[in-house]
């Protein structure tokens, strides 16, 4: 087995009396494409927030490259190489597409204020290059000067991914990237995520769209009511009685 990039050990998060995530343990190996699914309210996004430092853990540990990152702030985790996107599209609306992406690059490269005053040419060059390359990767170069708010919904999704890519992450966490996309857009996105994985990026995604997860992920982690009920390749998950029950048991 390859070395685990990310290890989650008995991660637990309580909100008052509610246990949103209950002793979930799993890992993500380098270069893997892992899906995280589960019915509404299963704790998927909460688990992502625990990994990325948005929500502190009630108990348990998160390790990244063997290093304990439990309790680190989100910007510290971001700088270590974990980038994320958000469920409800959070681009910076009043900034241009290029400037949006430059924020990700700036966070990773770092540009202290005194360097900015002095011109900061070397770092600014690096930020420019990264931003442009990330835009090229997602095919948004032609829209670089548009305001992010004016971008079509589907393109804003790619902008958010480009902003994360500009950080040059080793682990990319995508929170429901296909939400709100139609079938052909979803297929396009699936191919895109696969291609990122093929370039060596480790990807973890939360998704409602079962078909998407089953078609591209190598391993699927299933959460239900905050607990992990399955952690296996898609084929095995599909036949898992516990998974079937969790999904079919939900009235709809």
């Amino acid at each position: 087995m390859t070395a685990a990039l990310l290890e989650i050990e008995e991660a637990t998060r309580r909100f008052g009396g509610l246990v949103a995530v209950n002793e979930v343990s799993t890992h993500v190996a380098e270069g893997e494409l892992v899906g995280l699914i589960g019915p509404n309210g299963a704790g998927k996004t909460t688990l992502f927030n625990l990994i990325s430092g948005f929500t502190p853990l009630t108990s348990g540990r998160v390790r990244y490259r063997g290093r304990d990152i439990t309790g680190l702030k989100s910007h510290q985790i971001g700088r270590l190489g974990i980038a994320r996107t958000f469920q409800n599209l959070r681009v910076f609306p009043n900034m241009s597409v290029f400037d949006n992406v430059s924020v990700g690059a700036t966070g990773a490269v770092g540009l202290p204020f005194f360097r900015a005053v002095a011109g900061g040419r070397r770092r600014s060059d690096a930020i420019s290059r990264r931003s442009l390359a990330a835009l090229e990767r997602v095919g948004l170069v032609a829209q670089a000067d548009d305001l992010a708010a004016n971008l079509a919904y589907g393109k804003r999704k790619y902008l958010e991914i480009a902003r994360a890519l500009a950080m040059h992450p080793d682990l990319l966490i995508l929170d429901e990237p296909a939400a709100g996309l139609n079938e052909s857009e979803t297929a396009e996105l699936a191919a895109f995520i696969r291609s990122l994985r093929d370039e060596g990026l480790t990807v973890m995604l939360v998704e409602h769209d079962m078909a998407l997860v089953m078609s591209i992920c190598e391993r699927v982690v299933v959460l239900a009511s905050g607990q992990k009920i399955a952690d296996a390749p898609p084929d095995a998950v599909r036949r898992d009685p516990a998974v079937l029950e969790a999904y079919l048991g939900v009235d709809e």
Partner: peptide
């Protein structure tokens, strides 16, 4: 130099969505 630069862009991102800016590695 501070506002019309990548440093300025980082500051602008705080205005837009500071939680999200944090995830970009910005303190």
């Amino acid at each position: 130099r501070l506002t019309d630069s990548y440093y300025g862009n980082a500051l602008r991102s705080l205005r837009e969505d500071d939680q999200c800016a944090g995830a970009m590695g910005l303190d």
